[in-house]
């Protein structure tokens, strides 16, 4: 299971970076979202994967070894919420920018390079 998730995480990082390097605004946002997912999945895998055990910890410390670490899962929850907010903002931003620029092309973002 770890191997599968590692491969998926790597694939997500690669896909995210690839999408960010395209010229299209829309692909860039998709790339950012994929990168966020990749980082979350990485945290999840690092927490350890244990199937079938209920989510409470026995007072016996030896038994705790067969449970996944709950902390990374808490971190992912936080990161997902933050990522959702930021991505929602990003999508609205590119929609407005698309309206102002009239193209889905990053090479058209030139008005920051010259002024007046």
């Amino acid at each position: 299971m770890e191997l599968v998730l590692s491969a998926v995480t790597g694939g997500l990082y690669a896909a995210g970076l690839f999408m960010m390097m395209r010229r299209s605004l829309f692909n860039m946002i998709l790339g950012l979202i994929l990168l966020g997912h990749a980082a979350n999945l990485l945290l999840f895998t690092l927490g350890g994967l244990e199937r079938g055990n209920p989510a409470f910890v026995a007072s016996d410390p030896a038994a705790a070894a067969s449970f996944p670490d709950p902390l990374p899962q808490a971190l992912i929850l936080t990161a997902i919420v933050i990522g959702f907010g930021v991505n929602a903002f990003a999508v609205v931003l590119i929609r407005r920018a698309h309206g102002a620029i009239g193209a889905d092309d990053l090479d058209e973002l030139k008005s920051t390079d010259c002024s007046d």
């Binding site: 605004l25 860039m28 931003l93 920018a97 102002a100 620029i101 973002l109 008005s111 920051t112 002024s115």
Partner: peptide, 8 residues
């Protein structure tokens, strides 16, 4: 427009 481009 310049702000939107900068923000992206």
């Amino acid at each position: 427009r310049i702000q939107l481009e900068a923000a992206i």
